[in-house]
């Protein structure tokens, strides 16, 4: 993604000097980008008014605290929180499943509330605190929900698991883990195509019954 931004810049700031293939990519990326930008920018590009094109591509500064670490990043407005985490900050624990808010694999906590990071624009998380699956364990000590998922075999392929666990922690914190029925209802935003649901519910029930701080 970073590369694409650089190659989209009109003033040769991309890192493609001397490589014909990359030069071609750079030009075609720019053309595609211009074709997709508002009329005013296209007009500016035609007139070789580079500043105006640059203004459209402008990255915005975002202050964001992730798992207790403060980051100041520059992102395009269209970058989702999910892509910021995975592509720019190398926090790949949060998974991209459907990318349309239908599967829950990308679930993270923003200011303590679980959300779908694939439908959250990173610029809109400015000034907020994000917790991802990487932020649950305390050093080598797993979070009780992580322990419970292992104990109860709450996964098979594991792809949905980070989202399931983030959602499960929120489910208990919200007070929606009072019964099997309630857990199933409040975990319905997390799809598991391996069908580990009974084990996931058991893991959550155990954590809830244990009464630990989650």
């Amino acid at each position: 993604m970073d590369e694409q931004y650089n190659e989209g810049l009109p003033d040769g700031q991309g890192q493609s000097a001397g490589n014909p293939r990359r030069d071609f990519l750079k030009k075609s990326t720019l053309l595609t980008a211009v074709a997709l930008t508002p009329g005013v920018a296209v007009k500016a590009a035609e007139n070789h008014v580079d500043e105006h094109v640059a203004a459209v591509f402008e990255k915005l500064p975002v202050d964001i605290e992730i798992n207790g670490v403060k980051h100041n990043v520059l992102v395009e407005p269209r970058v989702t929180l999910l892509d910021l985490l995975r592509e720019q900050l190398n926090l790949t624990g949060t998974k991209k499943g459907c990318d349309y808010g239908q599967c829950g694999a990308c679930t993270v906590h923003v200011d303590g509330h679980r959300v779908n990071s694939c439908l959250t624009l990173a610029v809109m998380v400015d000034g907020k605190k994000v917790t991802t699956i990487e932020g649950l364990a305390k050093g080598d000590e797993l979070h009780p929900m992580q322990e419970a998922f292992i104990k109860h075999d709450g996964f098979q392929c594991g792809y949905c698991t980070p989202g399931q666990i983030m959602s499960a922690v929120a489910c208990v914190r919200e007070g929606h883990a009072g019964s099997e029925m309630e857990i199933r209802e409040y975990m319905s935003g997390n799809i598991c195509r391996c069908g580990a649901y009974p084990n996931i519910v058991n893991a959550i029930m155990e954590v809830k019954a244990g009464g630990q701080q989650v």
Binding site: G101, R114, V115, S167, S188, N190
Partner: peptide, 9 residues
């Protein structure tokens, strides 16, 4: 409506 995550958004 929706899911717990989406209702939070």
């Amino acid at each position: 409506g929706a899911s717990a995550q989406l209702r939070n958004m």
